[in-house]
Design a protein around this nucleic acid. Sequence first.
DNA 1: CGTGGCCCCTGTGGGC
DNA 2: TGCCCACAGGGGCCAC
Length: 313
Amino acid sequence: MPELPEVETVRRTLADRVRGCTVSGVIVRRRDVIVTPDDPAGGFSRQRRTPAERGTRDERRIRRSRSPRRVEKSDLLLDDQISDIRRHGKQLALVGESGRCVLIHLGMTGEVMAPGPGQRLRAADHLHVLWTLRQPGGDSAGRMVFRDPRRFGGIWTLPTPQALADRWAQLGPDGLTITGEGLARGAGRSRRAVKAALLDQRTVAGVGNIYADESLFRSGIAPQRLASGLSASDWERLAGAIREILSQAVELRGSTLRDYRDAGGLPGDATSLHQVYGRSGRSCNRCETPLSDELVAQRTTVWCPRCQPAENG
DNA sequence: CGTGGCCCCTGTGGGC
DNA sequence: TGCCCACAGGGGCCAC
């Protein structure tokens, strides 16, 4: 679901609602969406099984419902104050006054909502973690919830801001400030398609399938071109296009295709910026050539064969 | 080592 | 109406 503009919009709307609040209760409904530092392999490590071992959906659900270890609720900021909400790329972090950090990754369908007192949630299923919040004065501030139907997202508990910084240092520069040199440093020698390199969060943090296609269109670069074949001026144009589309999409509060909502439940309007994503077969807004689509890096990719020529535009 | 392919999940929309 | 299939905004892991 969310790329950088959507996560930044969640960050802002969430900060408005929960910054300064104290956590007076934590409910963990699904232990397996949470990864603590002592979990083996740092989470996300799911065993490889044959279809027979995997069983039916119901069997898997029952297996997972018996979660192994308890989570220390203080690691999820119980009795702590939420002093800051940060973002790098597509990742969000609640920073407690104690220094503890809760890193949230929304994956494809994750959302963080903070309904005020009395405000209803849009959906009551797939709520994996719930926090109860109080204002500094002690009044109720409602709740904050993590919901994620597909569970490609997750929550990592980290002991210190330094541990958070260490994690984020493994990602590339944030998309809002990416430079041509930054892109070239991360992907200039890669023999992958340039789109695959953009989707790799070590190249640039925050670009996903929508904004990869949109930034390639804006810079006139075909998604299939080998990253190592791009010139310095190609990287420069591409970086400029990434900064531009991302910041414009933030202004419009993100792209709501179907599920995405900000922390207050509001959809965003950034789909109005889309020139190629979701428009395969329709005509290019710039030159009227029908837009093409093809799988690149296992993701549906849409581009204009005329505005984005296969070799050096 | 870098890379492509497969997998993790649930929900939805289209075709029959 | 119901069934089956393809597809969806992400990314980890493994065999090459």
